[in-house]
Design a protein around this nucleic acid. Structure first.
Lengths: 215, 215
DNA sequence: AGCCTCTTGTGAACTGATGCACAAGGTGTC
DNA sequence: GACACCTTGTGCATCAGTTCACAAGAGGCT
């Protein structure tokens, strides 16, 4: 309805899934997709799809469904997918290298334009097309290359310092893989992904199922 | 109160954070920690800490706080951290290799005992101490090594097939990095981490802030 | 045209999680 | 022993998100 009244966070988190689901429809071909189909493609239920999309506007046709191409355009619009946001990867360990080389980033408008690492042997080299700089140059890099997003894949001890440097350089969006809590001003958006934590959550359920089975 | 009345999902997701926060306290030393301190260490607020811990039991002392060592023990207990859950990594691309080599996994009771990949050049090799097998051997591997958790880091196209193979072999816990929806029986717990999606969510906020600044 | 079928959009109930505020219950001091 | 001071544990209000259920509207068939 309201073309852009505040979109709930939970909805924002699902829009990329819908966009991904719509990839199943070839471009240029006129096709309609129902909330039911889209729900399957995104792995959620149909009611949620409809409510989510209603936050963007009324783009569906009752009795028919949504025009796939048009819907894709609208979601892209809302997410700002047309923009390209350059990324810097801080910490070129195993994970950092994998991220710097991750094609899924560049493909979706998040090119990794530079990296930093504290290892003197790595500084000055180019890994998979990504130049590695010293951590002290972070501010320079951000300004020079217009970096919008910082990815932190350093050891936990170095994470807060890296975050501070990113913030000081004007970066307001950070994705962190370091297993630690980061503090930053409110206007900085931090998404923290701790892989070990994820496994521990799986472990909890395994553990409980085992106990339940013991009875 | 009830030592183990059903623990809310949101609480379960935070328990690993508390455990991580408690690492700040040296083992063997008697120390108390207040909900306020723990809240800082875990990056949440004090009220949440208290309510979360109250689901495990009443382990705190009013006027004092929680005994750090005892609390760590209790949370470990609840999470089943004492268990060791062997992990198999499916798909040894950039990300898979990084995960197989990730020390944070083994350290926390999730040793990567094997990997699979469809590339004939990789099959039979040992990468960072992890033997790489053919995807067809997955069932064997799971049974032989007692694998409890499967990590899917294959391309999206291969993800569902891999998940099916894991499920067929009896694995009930899956962490997937493939940008696609996986279907599996209800009793299988799937945690999906899509890195590009995470970046798109950050991108949304950047996009909106930019629009807001335009006015 | 009228009717039947289909799917959207949304009000409303419900569920789960969050945050407040405070009584309950400890510790240490005088 | 009484009092002052802490911090927990929790009842309650609030909020966000989910799900249901159905009226409104669009297309197609006879």
């Amino acid at each position: 309805m309201a073309p852009l009244g505040r979109i709930p966070e939970a909805t924002v988190a699902r829009l990329p899934l819908y966009l991904r689901g719509l990839d199943a429809f070839p471009v240029g071909v006129t096709a309609t997709v129902s909330s039911d189909e889209l729900a399957d493609l995104a792995g959620v239920n149909a009611a949620k799809v409809r409510k989510d999309l209603s936050h963007l506007g009324t783009y569906g046709t009752r009795g028919v469904g949504y025009d796939a191409a048009f819907l894709r355009f609208q979601i892209s619009q809302a997410l700002g997918v047309a923009n390209v946001w350059p990324v810097v990867v801080c910490g070129m360990g195993n994970l950092g290298r994998a991220l710097a080389n991750h094609t899924g980033f560049t493909d979706r408008g998040f090119p990794v334009v530079a990296a930093t690492d504290s290892d003197p042997d790595k500084i000055g080299t180019v890994v998979d097309g990504v130049p590695v700089h010293a951590p002290g140059e972070l501010g320079d890099i951000v300004r020079r290359l217009g970096v919008a997003i910082g990815v932190i894949s350093t050891p936990a001890e170095a994470a807060q310092g890296t975050a501070d440097a990113l913030v000081a350089a004007g970066v307001t969006s950070i994705m962190s893989f370091a297993p630690t809590v980061l503090s930053a001003p409110d206007e900085v958006e931090i998404r923290s992904v701790d892989l070990a934590t994820e496994l521990q959550i799986l472990g909890f359920h395994l553990h409980r199922d085992r106990i339940a089975g013991d009875s």
